[in-house]
């Protein structure tokens, strides 16, 4: 049974893998036996994460590039195939919060386009390039997109929420289109998840306060993405496709009242 969670010898690509949730997934995937390629813009972060994985006995390499540029995305997938002889699982994880602090009706085109490019276009390009390799190999594979609790409901992050809603639709659309080619497509929707370990007590306190809004009474940790990533990349989820996995401590399920609120009526 546990063999089905193993990824030994599998080629796995994680965009945005230098830091944050991508780093957490890359660590776990490598620990499960995968040959991991992480991609991002910032070389120092890539180098650090690759080193961490190698220090832990895993196999990792990196590709430095801009995921909003389809030519660079295609080059990334080619580099992965060259390095590891194929591509079995691809996490279109790269994204950004960003934008500008302005009312919706004041938002500039440039900010909207930037957020959309980094969260939605990048996912589209990555899935497109990865699926092409998977289809042509005849072996299929698995694609994992990253949406967000912010893609579900009202939020002041208009462009981000719109883009993440788009990622959710991309997942569903592709699950049908790619299923005949033995490619599964699933999505991970994190709630509030810390991008790194807290730097100091002040940050720890701030997170504890944020956690008060979540049924689990805490925010998620960056490394908690790992086991879900392994499950979705592996044969353990071989009949699962087109699904979205919230990893949010119960946040999306609640939200009707403050998380700790108890109504009083008894029979």
């Amino acid at each position: 049974m546990l063999d089905q969670f193993r990824l030994d010898g599998k080629a796995v690509l994680v965009t945005g893998g230098g830091r944050g949730l991508g780093r957490g997934m890359a660590h776990a995937l490598a620990a499960a036996g995968a040959n991991v390629m992480i991609a991002a813009r910032t070389q120092e972060q890539l180098d650090r994460t690759v080193q961490e994985i190698r220090d832990a006995g895993g196999t990792a390499t990196s590709f430095s590039g801009d995921m909003t540029d389809s030519a660079q995305v295609n080059a990334m997938v080619e580099a992965c195939v060259r390095e590891y002889g194929g591509l079995d699982a691809c996490f279109a994880n790269a994204g950004m919060g960003g934008g500008v602090d302005a009312e919706f009706w004041e938002w500039p085109d440039s900010a909207f386009e930037e957020v959309l490019a980094n969260n939605l276009k990048s996912a589209f390009y990555t899935c497109r390039a990865a699926s092409k390799v998977m289809v042509e190999s005849g072996k299929g594979g698995t694609l994992i997109t990253l949406s967000s609790a912010g893609g579900y409901r009202a939020s002041k992050r208009w462009a981000y929420g719109t883009a993440k809603g788009g990622v959710l639709s991309l997942t569903k659309v592709l699950s049908g289109a790619l299923a005949p080619h033995k490619i599964r497509v699933n999505c991970i929707s994190p709630g509030i998840v810390a991008q790194r370990d807290p730097a100091d007590d002040q940050e720890r306190a701030r997170r504890a306060q944020q956690g008060g809004f979540i049924p689990a009474n805490r925010v998620g940790e960056w490394w908690e993405m790992g086991p879900l990533a392994v499950y979705l990349a592996s044969d353990a989820s071989s009949y699962v496709t087109g699904q979205d996995f919230a990893i949010d401590g119960g946040m999306l399920n609640a939200g009707l009242a403050p998380a700790k609120y108890r109504p009083h009526a008894e029979i």
Partner: peptide, 16 residues
């Protein structure tokens, strides 16, 4: 019966 407005969290729930 379910939103007690004498409760601070109950009042907050009405702003959700």
């Amino acid at each position: 019966d379910r939103i007690d407005t004498s409760d601070e969290d109950g009042q907050r729930a009405l702003r959700f």
